[in-house]
Amino acid sequence: MEVIVDAADEQRFRDFVSARSPALMRLAYLLTGGDQHAAEDLLQSALARSAARWRTVEEPEAYVRQVMYRQQVSWWRRRRETTFAEPPDRAEAGGDDGTAGVELRIVMRRALARLTSRQRAVLVLRYYEDLPEAEVAGILGCSVGTVRSTTHRSLAKLRALAPELREPYTIFGEAKA
């Protein structure tokens, strides 16, 4: 593996990390089901792998994201099942005090954490990353039909886990009427 040795490449890598880390961290957080430590590990691992090939990378953000997807899939294959701690009970909403959006995001994060890793990955890639089914299939190493059926089952499970999501709220930032 090639390592960054040129000062200009090193500076370009540092600038990229500085500018894009927050967005990449959000993606890592979603891919890991809201596990902050696992998200940090995933991003760190992806950046380390990217640094090793930095001189040949043409599209840095796309490359790092691809490394993150593949690394996470690799971790899932090794673990097969992920255990999450039970989140505390949700406080009942009392009127419209501006917290509905925050509560909805909390409900969504909790529901996503209860999906399998593969289900979560399919939903994140399809709706958060807005990737077509064929690209999701390529990233996850499965067929387009598997992506479609997994998407269908995952959305149904989300709705069962969090009935609040059946309301005309948003799922992954898209308004549903």
Rank of each mutant, 00 (worst) to 15 (best):
K176R: 15
I139A: 05
R153W: 01
R79N: 15
Q71G: 13
R148S: 14
V57F: 07
P60L: 12
R166A: 03
V122Q: 01
R114A: 05
W76H: 11
H37G: 12
R79H: 05
W54M: 04
E129C: 15
A156S: 13
Y128V: 07
R120A: 01
L30Q: 06
G98W: 09
R148M: 06
R26D: 14
Q119R: 04
S117L: 10
R109M: 06
R55M: 03
V102Y: 08
A160C: 08
R110K: 11
I139P: 00
A121L: 11
I4Q: 01
T83K: 15
E61I: 11
E61F: 14
K157L: 02
S50M: 02
P163I: 06
D6C: 07
V3D: 09
V136F: 00
R159W: 11
V107P: 04
V107Q: 13
K157P: 03
T170V: 12
A52K: 03
G145V: 07
Q72T: 04
E40Q: 13
R153C: 06
E92Q: 14
F16G: 03
R105Q: 00
R77Q: 12
T170N: 09
P88R: 15
R12Y: 03
L43N: 01
P168G: 14
E61K: 11
G33L: 00
R105E: 14
R120D: 00
R77K: 12
S18D: 10
R53Q: 11
E133D: 14
H37L: 10
S154P: 04
W54I: 08
Q66Y: 06
R80Y: 03
A19Y: 07
S45Y: 09
S74V: 12
L158G: 00
K157C: 03
G173E: 11
A177F: 05
A38K: 10
A162R: 03
C142M: 04
G98K: 09
I4K: 04
A48Y: 05
M68A: 13
L112A: 12
R65G: 00
P168I: 14
A7Y: 05
L158R: 05
G95F: 12
W75P: 08
E81H: 15
L165D: 04
K176G: 07
E2M: 14
I171Q: 07
T150I: 04
I139V: 07
A7N: 05
A23D: 10
T150K: 00
G173L: 12
E103I: 10
Q11E: 04
S143P: 01
A121D: 09
F13R: 07
E40R: 15
R159L: 13
R12I: 00
A177S: 07
T150N: 01
D130E: 13
R114G: 08
F84M: 13
H37Q: 06
R120E: 00
K157S: 02
E40L: 10
R77S: 11
R20W: 06
G138S: 09
S149H: 10
P88M: 14
P132D: 08
E40M: 10
R159M: 03
G173M: 13
D96F: 11
D130N: 09
T32F: 08
Q36E: 13
D96P: 02
E10Q: 11
Q66A: 06
R126Q: 02
E135Q: 08
G95A: 11
R14H: 08
A156I: 04
W54T: 08
F84D: 06
R49T: 02
T116C: 02
L24M: 08
T170Y: 11
M108I: 02
K157W: 04
T83Y: 11
V57S: 00
D6F: 04
